[in-house]
Nucleic acid binder design. Structure first.
Lengths: 165, 165
DNA sequence: CGAGTGTAGTACAACTTTGAACTAACAGTT
DNA sequence: AACTGTTAGTTCAAAGTTGTACTACACTCG
């Protein structure tokens, strides 16, 4: 729908033609980028980007362990979705679930040694993909601007909380 | 996995700490933004963003019609996925599928009057969401830079083809 | 304490997406 | 015309995702 010639008269500020071009570039570029990264990671390592991200988050904690809820918040995934992902990863031997001592409701998700090995093996390929399709095709200034803009978006959406991601 | 202290020695250029921050902001911000837009559109109009985008593309052609393949390319969706989406939309009476005269293999997907009405009714809310969570929280320069960067990404991934999106 | 409220995680069923296999039709070649 | 390769679109089964409902535990305040 063309935004500069709205079909009806509403109390809505439409996007200007220029804004629309940028918005579409963002949406289309992001969709294609994430799809490409997903496919290359899957092809090269058998991991989905979600699984990869789970391993990354766990690898960054001192004991390679996170509570399910923290993991879900970090990844911006629903609880339900994370439960499924972690169950599948547990079946593959990449992670383990252990009861949480401090809070009997909780579940600690820990990376196994195999999980660590899989991550180490997968990382170079994935980093290269991110470089190939994003980092290296932009100027450093462009990439930094992209990051800064999206950090603003992220902070806005999380209400300034969730500094982890 | 921290990129400035790789666990193994590879012939890989790792991301610098700064690049990693930008990359994560982009990934996290995008994921949350698209999720928020999806939820608000669904809540306010009952449409998914995919369905909305289908209607938008169709609305922009002179006869409100596109071939399945064009639609799939525009949206960067798989053929299979588009078939399912269009079947569901056809059941809701938003679009219609008609055989293509020029190419007997093809299928023309046309927006119905109801589809047009649904789009007109949905657009203001969606535009407002995009403004609220993206356009209006960035400076015009930031938003333009974002669009330009992602256009570069998109062109790189589509090999310069597919100027439509 | 114990009643009420909130949080952590899982289970279930419905829905969506995926990739491969398939049918049909076009296009070029000999 | 027959052969080959390519493109358009759908179908199928497997896998992933969603939202709700549910159980168990924790926290707070009378």
């Amino acid at each position: 729908m063309t935004t500069d010639t709205p079909a009806t008269t509403h109390a809505v500020e439409w996007l200007t033609a220029e804004q629309q071009v940028h918005w579409r570039a963002f949406r289309g570029g992001s969709a294609r980028l994430f799809a490409a990264l997903e496919h290359e990671l899957e092809r090269d390592t058998g991991l989905s980007t979600h699984e990869y991200e789970v391993l990354v988050r766990l690898s960054e904690t001192p004991d390679r362990t996170l509570r399910m809820a923290q993991l879900a918040d970090n990844l911006a995934h629903s609880r339900s979705r994370l439960t499924h992902t972690i169950r599948r990863m547990e079946e593959q031997g990449l992670v383990e679930r252990l009861p949480c001592i401090e809070d009997a409701r909780g579940v600690n998700c820990t990376m196994t040694e195999k999980g660590w090995q899989v991550l180490v093996a997968a990382a170079p390929s994935h980093v290269q993909s991110v470089r190939d399709h994003l980092v290296d095709i932009l100027t450093p200034e462009q990439f930094a601007a992209l990051g800064d803009a999206m950090e603003t978006v992220r902070l806005h959406l999380t209400g300034g909380a969730c500094h982890v991601e």
